[in-house]
Amino acid sequence: MRKALLLGMAAATLAVAPLAHAAGGCGPYGHRGWGGVCRPNGPYGPRPLYGPVYGPGPAIGVFYPGRGYWYGGRYYWHRGWGGRGWRYY
């Protein structure tokens, strides 16, 4: 009786084990992060691409039509010389 109980528990554990590795559809080495995005669990394996790579961002102090001058992480419509350098407002 004891042997049958142990075999039954082992079979149940093995039947559930593959479900635990699915991790919400992210594979054996991933988990769901913020917003439901798959994230790697550790430093091993290939890393997913987090969006397209466009190259360097806009250049500081350049006027972009329809947006303005790029400076400090945002666009400004006007700029003027402030004695020590350009002021954006």
Rank of each mutant, 00 (worst) to 15 (best):
P18Q: 04
M9H: 02
G80P: 03
L5Q: 11
Y75P: 00
L14H: 02
G35S: 06
L6E: 15
G33L: 09
Y76G: 02
L5E: 13
A15Q: 04
R79Q: 14
P46F: 13
C38Q: 04
I60N: 13
Y44K: 06
G73Q: 05
G30Y: 04
P46T: 14
P40R: 10
A11P: 01
G42V: 00
P56H: 02
G73P: 05
W81I: 03
N41P: 07
Y29A: 04
R84F: 13
A10L: 06
H31E: 10
I60R: 08
W86G: 00
G66E: 15
R79G: 08
R2G: 15
W77P: 05
G57Q: 08
G82L: 08
G82I: 10
P56V: 04
A20V: 13
R84W: 13
H31M: 04
H31L: 06
A4Q: 12
G55W: 13
P48V: 05
R47M: 12
Y89V: 00
Y54Q: 11
Y50D: 04
Y75A: 03
Y64S: 09
W81Q: 01
P46C: 08
P43H: 13
N41L: 09
A17Y: 11
Y50F: 11
G85R: 02
A23H: 03
Y89W: 09
W70F: 15
G57H: 09
C26V: 01
L19T: 08
L7M: 10
V53N: 03
G72I: 02
G82R: 06
G25W: 01
M1Y: 12
G27T: 08
A59G: 12
P65L: 15
G73C: 02
G45F: 05
Y75H: 01
L14M: 09
G25S: 08
A17F: 06
R79A: 10
Y88A: 00
W81Y: 04
P52M: 14
A22I: 11
Y54H: 12
K3D: 01
A20K: 09
G82M: 07
G83P: 13
Y64M: 14
H78F: 05
A10I: 14
R79V: 11
G8H: 02
Y89T: 00
G35M: 08
Y89G: 03
W77F: 01
L14N: 03
G57W: 12
L6H: 11
R47N: 05
K3F: 06
Y50R: 00
R2Y: 11
C38R: 04
H78W: 02
V37E: 13
A59T: 15
C26Q: 03
Y29F: 04
G66A: 14
L5Y: 14
I60A: 13
R32G: 00
P40V: 13
Y88M: 03
P43K: 14
R87C: 06
L49S: 06
G80Q: 03
Y71A: 15
Y69R: 03
V37I: 06
V16C: 10
P58N: 12
R67N: 10
P18F: 04
G24S: 10
G73V: 08
